[in-house]
Nucleic acid binder design. Structure first.
Lengths: 122, 122
DNA sequence: ATAATAGTTAACCATATGGTTAACTATTCG
DNA sequence: CGAATAGTTAACCATATGGTTAACTATTAT
C-alpha cells in the first residue's frame, strides 16, 4: 500500500512548481554539476540559485557532495517516483470519474443532500 | 513532441503542493460535488475552500457548472496528464543519470570547467 | 601570505499564499 | 413578499517565496 506522506508531497510538488527549479533538475538529469555550472545560464544571482538548490535538497530531489570547495549536485529520483505515483493513482479514479459523472447526470439528481456517500477514506 | 508549457506546469504543480487541494481532488475523483459538500470535512471556513477551488479551477484541474445556486465541481484530468508526463519524461533521464554519475566518477574528473556539455535543450 | 574562486548566510524588499471575518449576490423555500 | 441557503468578494493579517546586495567562510592557486 502506498502511503503518500502529505508533507513529502507538499515539498516535492512545491519544488516542481518553479520553472527555474524544473530546469535545474532537467540539467542535472544530463549530468551532475556544480553550483556555478548550474547558475551559469540563469539571469539571476548565485545566491538565488543557491536558494533554489536548498529547496530541491530539502525536498530530497537532489543530494550534495562536497569536493573541496565545490559542491556537486546529484539527482535523487525517489520523491519524484512518489509524486508520479500519487498522480497516477488518482488519475485512474479521475478518468473513471468521467463515467461516474455520466451516471450522475442521468440519475434523477438527488443532489439536495448527497452527504451519505462518505464511505471511503477521507 | 511534448511541449510542457512552463506556466501550465507551474500552476499544476503549485495547485498540487497543498494538502487541502490534493484532498479536494481526491474526493472529487470519487464523485462530482458541490462547494459545501467539499468544505464539510475541512476545519476551515467556506471562503477558504472557495479560494482553493478557484486555484484548482485556474490551474484547469476542475471545471465548474452552475446549477441554480449550486456550483458543481468536476475533475479535469488533462493538466494532470501533462504533469505526470513531465515527471515521467525526466525521470527516465534521472534513473539513467545514475549511470552517468558512475561514469563521471571514474573519469579523471576534468571538473574545473565542464561547460562544454550544453548541446541539448536548455 | 595574499589573492582568487566556490559557495553560503544575512538582511532586506516586493509580492504571493493561506487563512480569517464581514458583507455581498443569487437562488430557493414558505 | 421575506427568510434561508449556496457561494463569492472584499478587506485584512501573518507567513512564505523569490529575488537582491553585502558580508562572510572555506578552499585553492600564486
Amino acid at each position: 500500500m502506498v502511503n503518500y506522506s502529505p508533507a513529502t508531497l507538499d515539498a516535492t510538488f512545491a519544488a516542481l512548481a518553479d520553472p527555474t527549479r524544473r530546469q535545474i533538475l532537467q540539467r542535472l538529469s544530463e549530468q551532475p554539476q556544480r553550483v556555478t555550472d548550474l547558475a551559469g545560464p540563469f539571469a539571476m544571482s548565485l545566491p538565488a540559485v543557491s536558494k533554489h538548490l536548498r529547496i530541491l535538497e530539502d525536498a530530497g530531489l537532489l543530494t550534495r557532495r562536497r569536493l573541496g570547495r565545490e559542491h556537486h549536485l546529484q539527482l535523487e529520483p525517489a520523491p519524484l517516483r512518489d509524486a508520479q505515483s500519487w498522480i497516477e493513482h488518482y488519475r485512474r479514479f479521475w478518468e473513471g470519474s468521467l463515467d461516474a459523472l455520466a451516471e450522475y447526470l442521468e440519475k434523477p439528481t438527488p443532489l439536495t443532500k448527497p452527504k451519505k456517500k462518505k464511505r471511503k477514506k477521507t
